[in-house]
């Protein structure tokens, strides 16, 4: 009763044949291109429809800062506007204190975490039960669901949009950053990149050959506007997003 490979191949061939037939007539260029001086143009001066290099588009998109210090400032500003809470601390010891204080203040009973050089040093002072996610034992979904907070590292932070990039390979899998009610991210300030394009470059460098099965740009706490277009935080994912940023540009 399962569709055979042959049936799938037949459907594929039929669709690809229709695609090939349809594309025999070329389409006109996109309507109303702004086409000003910075738009790519061909030798005849027409908007170039060759693949637009992202380099060309970069200067048109929102700014991500020109220096590391600028990017950090833009990143923190965007995160705050998105209703994430940012804590800037000088070192890992201060980060551990910060986490412990938040745990006490918010009355956490259970925290989930994953093995990572930035995460582990923070756990010592956390005044509650902690569950490690990942490793050989795997984890129990119900246990994770019952956690107040999930503590994870990230791949990078994107200043341009105030996004945090997490991956299933390096940040404790898929559920840790989405199932608990609070998501705590710990990162160093060197992990801030200016733009989304930089984040993609980084991904390619780090994971070429074997992409993580999930890469997720997290931009603020979970939200919905489905009821009368009124903003409510914490629809299904974390209601709160805490970002602990370790290090300072001034000190360097």
């Amino acid at each position: 009763m399962i569709r055979t490979a042959a049936e799938n191949a037949t459907a594929r061939a039929a669709i690809m044949a229709r695609v090939g037939e349809a594309l025999r007539i070329p389409a006109p260029p996109p309507h109303g291109l702004a086409g000003r001086s910075t738009s790519p143009v061909d030798a005849a001066g027409h908007p170039s429809l060759a693949i637009l290099p992202l380099e060309a588009a970069r200067p048109w998109l929102p700014d991500g800062g020109a220096t590391p210090a600028e990017s950090l400032a833009v990143c923190c500003e965007n995160l705050t506007k998105l209703r994430a809470e940012v804590f800037q601390v000088p070192d890992l010891a201060a980060a551990a204190d910060c986490l412990a204080a938040q745990a006490r203040q918010r009355d956490w009973r259970r925290v989930a975490w994953h093995a990572h050089p930035l995460v582990e040093p923070l756990l010592a002072g956390v005044p509650c039960v902690s569950h490690r996610i990942g490793g050989d034992a795997g984890f129990d979904k119900d246990t994770l669901e019952a956690c107040d907070a999930g503590l994870s590292a990230c791949e990078c932070l994107v200043a341009q949009t105030g996004s945090i990039l997490v991956s299933s390979q390096t940040c404790g899998g898929r559920a840790l950053s989405i199932l608990p009610h609070v998501h705590v991210v710990v990162a160093t300030i060197e992990q801030v990149v200016p733009t989304l394009a930089d984040a993609f470059d980084l991904t390619r460098e780090r994971h070429s050959g074997s992409l993580p099965s999930m890469l997720s740009f997290i931009t603020g706490p979970s939200r919905t506007g489905d009821i009368e277009r009124i903003l409510v935080l914490g629809a299904h994912g974390p209601k709160e997003l805490l970002v602990i940023l370790v290090g300072s540009h001034a000190a360097q």
Binding site: I178, T219, R223
Partner: peptide, 12 residues
Amino acid sequence: QPMTCYNTLYAG
């Protein structure tokens, strides 16, 4: 919005 809250890439 500047970005939608979650933009996720799945590779298998």
